[in-house]
Design a protein around this nucleic acid. Structure first.
Lengths: 347, 347
DNA sequence: TTGTATGCGTTATCAT
DNA sequence: ATGATAACGCATACAA
């Protein structure tokens, strides 16, 4: 073991600072700063000399010090429950694109619906490590805290309005129109009795979907409350199948695709055919929806656009050091009619 | 428009600093610091007074200043090509979990394989805004830059060893074993002539998969180079179908699921049946693989574990201010036999 | 037990 | 065209 090895493994040696460059170039730190920023004219000779030293020393300004001085970090957070859900992954992609366009970094705050985890991430905004937060469907227990932050810090709500939280910057899909499209579609096919699998009671988006659906379907609707997970769609349908509650229903509308997948599985296990015996509709249009068998009829949510819009709007204010005003940006949805829906079988 | 409105929209008022707290509590900033950190004993009376002021003023230490002083930010980056690819989303989830466990933040660096974008993100490590980087399959053009950074900054390679980049901390799936499993499976089914759709030439993982496959398949293998995208799998197979190059092949092994999907589509469009006419195998086991029709036989990659392991290993050193030593962590893969493979049809 | 002084690495202000 | 100095907000070595 040579000395070199030991050295390589030890702490990195201190990086060159602006002072080091200044000293080596025989100028003041101020001049070095201006050569690099172009904020004021510098003699070309001097500038060249400084640049050469910068290269030789591999000097890169410490963005941390820069941020401290500037009072902003050019980093925002994206708080979501589950990055492995393709809906949120798409949303994240849109948010990252928007952030990158404006030179901002994006911290991934994946909460798994864990309130403590969410709180820790919200702490980043209080400690001013991030300049703002895009908040997409966090855990209900954190409402209070979110609310307390809302007026003081730049926060944008994406995809979901949190119940009771108004006066915020919001970007979301048109959930009600989505529900309406499904209602119209099923009604037009001839369905009159449906089962609706909703999301958690306190989510506005779910209420909007249900409301639009009832309004347009105009038939007999039984509702069951799920939690947006595949398993819950499976369980709810299986239960109803067991106690005969589904016997007179010809269609199932799940508030998201994952629950629709669960419903599909439960139906299959019960020996029922989709769409011959029962039609199934989802919501979100995640990637797997078109690949599954039968391909799922569902409402396409512009997840990417929601993330991108929420972030772009937020940054528009954050970049000026302002707290965003309340505003709503509703993005259009689209019904994707695929193989999981058909007219009800004649009885 | 009242004064209030104008005020609400304008810049947030300066947050309380440690000095404000000190002044209001009639102590020195040092004491406030110690009350909060517990780094040295403080009189309980004094401490109580300080805490009360902290609450009243809503004081939260500026993490930026703290980081500057500490010389580290407790934030690392995760560089991936596409967060909407479920493989990378899973990997990201693992990375985020590991980071969160150790109190680190994670900046999402989504590159879309864009070299400029990748460079900008790599810049964050040079400017010391992040303490380290988990690098998963970036764009080939950035190799040089990566290489230059490798020795000086804490970087861990996840999922992919970059060609010619040794001496790094690496966590990846056992690609060769995966290829071998596929080879054995197809051989056991009776296949003797296969088409292999590889990834970009310069990716080691692809080479390892191909090598393992050839070794175990022990038959006639034709290779075509793709780029890991669905479209490329489609195009390559369609081309071969056109010029008869696929006529004598009974199996296709795609180096990832996306290309396998493309191959499946091209085969279907040509009126060929899977697995009756041709067997198809993928790699990765992304979510859609089991949902597609027919369900895809593929090699399950532990994406979550790869992300988690790479990150945990990296942080083990970063947290001590060290540059990680070269090391390799190979994670086991698993063959998922599903409906897209069967014995070749008798001729 | 507490306080003073200094440094972390920048940029802005004010001079020259 | 360039430089000296202060300030961003904190933590810590050194003093008392």
């Amino acid at each position: 073991m040579t000395r070199d090895t030991a050295h390589d493994r030890s702490a990195v040696r201190r990086a060159a600072s602006i002072k080091d460059v200044a000293a080596a170039a025989g100028v003041s730190p101020t001049t070095v700063s201006h050569v690099l920023s172009g904020n004021r004219p510098v003699n070309e000779q001097t500038a060249a000399r400084v640049r050469s030293v910068v290269n030789r020393l591999g000097y890169v300004p410490a963005s941390l010090a820069r941020s401290l001085q500037a009072g902003a970090t050019s980093v925002i957070g994206l708080l979501i429950p589950d990055i492995s859900n393709t809906f949120f992954a798409e949303l994240a992609k849109g948010a990252e694109d928007a952030a990158h366009d404006l030179g901002y970094g994006l911290i991934l705050c994946n909460t798994e619906f864990d309130a403590d985890r969410e709180d820790r991430y919200l702490g980043m905004i209080r400690s001013r490590f991030i300049d703002g937060m895009v908040y997409a469907s966090g855990s209900p227990p954190s409402r209070r805290r979110l609310e307390a932050l809302m007026g003081k810090f730049p926060i944008a709500l994406a995809d979901e309005e949190v119940e009771g939280l108004s006066g915020a910057l919001i970007a979301s899909a048109d959930h009600e129109a989505g529900g309406r499209l499904v209602g119209e579609h099923l009604r037009a096919l001839g369905h009159r009795r449906a089962l609706m699998l909703t999301g958690p009671r306190d989510l506005r988006s779910g209420a909007a979907r249900a409301h639009g659906f009832r309004q347009a379907f105009h038939g007999d609707v039984v509702e069951r409350t799920g939690d947006f997970k595949e398993e819950s769609g499976h369980r709810l349908v299986a239960e109803l199948l067991d106690d005969g509650g589904l016997a007179d229903r010809t269609a199932v509308f799940a508030a998201n695709d994952l629950m629709a997948f669960g419903a599909l599985a439960a139906l299959r296990e019960a020996g029922l055919s989709v769409p011959d015996d029962v039609s199934v509709v989802g919501f979100d249009d995640i990637r797997a929806a078109s690949l599954i068998n039968p391909p799922l009829t569902t409402v396409h949510q512009p997840a990417y656009d929601v993330g991108r819009t929420a972030t772009a709007q937020l940054l528009q204010y954050v970049s000026r050091g302002e707290v965003p005003p309340a505003s709503r940006h509703t993005l259009p949805v689209e019904l994707k009619v695929r193989g999981s829906t058909a007219p009800p079988a004649a009885r």
